[in-house]
């Protein structure tokens, strides 16, 4: 028996127990082998439930666990760092025929992955604007903080996420939504990002001045509310002057 055979049998319950594995009396050991099958499936299902709480709410626990059983066999983890697990979930959902009527699910998964990446991202001092006059502010060359994530969806992805995570949140309105995730302390918070926000985020590369980046964003999205976008990014600490953030 090789570890390849063992791995294949763990991931496919229809396969027989690999040769050479027995109970202490030398008898076949299906129940015993199934302990390993169950441990693997249960621990990975737990990791997916922890990582996709809104999907869990949307699909219900039974459906989610059945989906997880299919997902973990199609996409066993490739990283030993379990907080990375599930990156293939959006594509998996987008291609999953039985859920084709719910095309927003993939974007909810994308939002939850972005929240998780934000949680583990490097710390970085937020751009401090106190005492700066507008000209000095526009001359700065900030970038998105490592924990800042931007996501655009043709669906009301943030409305759907909020409606499932907070029982008091309103029903989502049918519209496209862009989301800014910022992490002012240790907890990532998603915000609705007004039109032009993704264009501005894309133009902020740490070399371009804020003034020039805003000009480019307005050129791309002429109707953008510059003040609303800028206020959101500055008040949530989404921008930084740090090159790399602080990692241990």
């Amino acid at each position: 028996m090789t570890q390849r055979d063992f791995t294949a049998a763990i991931l496919d319950p229809a396969r027989p127990v690999p040769e050479g594995l027995t109970d202490p009396q030398g008898r076949p050991a299906l129940r015993r082998f199934n302990v390993y099958r169950n441990n693997v499936a249960a621990s990975l299902t737990d990791a997916l439930e922890t990582g996709f709480p809104a999907l869990l709410k949307l699909l219900g626990p039974d459906y989610f666990r059945s989906l997880a059983a299919l997902f973990l066999r199609a996409h066993p983890p490739r990283s030993r760092i379990l907080s990375h697990y599930g990156a293939e979930m959006p594509a998996f959902l987008a291609a999953f025929e039985p859920l084709a009527k719910y095309p927003y699910l993939a974007d909810v998964a994308r939002l939850e992955l972005a929240l998780r990446r934000s949680y583990h991202a490097a710390d970085a001092a937020p751009l401090a604007t106190g005492g700066l006059d507008p000209a000095a502010l526009m001359a700065l060359t900030p970038r998105l903080a490592p924990a800042t994530m931007i996501l655009s969806s043709p669906h009301p992805v943030l409305g759907i996420w909020r409606h499932n995570m907070d029982p008091d949140a309103p029903r989502p309105a049918p519209r496209a939504e862009a989301v800014l995730i910022a992490r002012p302390g240790f907890d990532p918070v998603p915000h609705l990002l007004p039109a032009g926000g993704p264009a501005l985020a894309g133009a902020l590369d740490g070399r371009t001045t804020l003034g020039l980046a805003l000009e480019r964003a307005v050129a791309a999205v002429p109707g953008m509310d510059v003040s609303a976008v800028l206020t959101l990014m500055l008040s949530t600490g989404a921008l930084t002057l740090s090159d790399t953030g602080d990692t241990p």
Partner: peptide, 14 residues
């Protein structure tokens, strides 16, 4: 062991 090839199984296998 817990990894074979590209696959990490997240369990302590014998």
């Amino acid at each position: 062991w817990s990894t074979h090839g590209d696959h990490f199984l997240n369990d302590l296998l014998p």
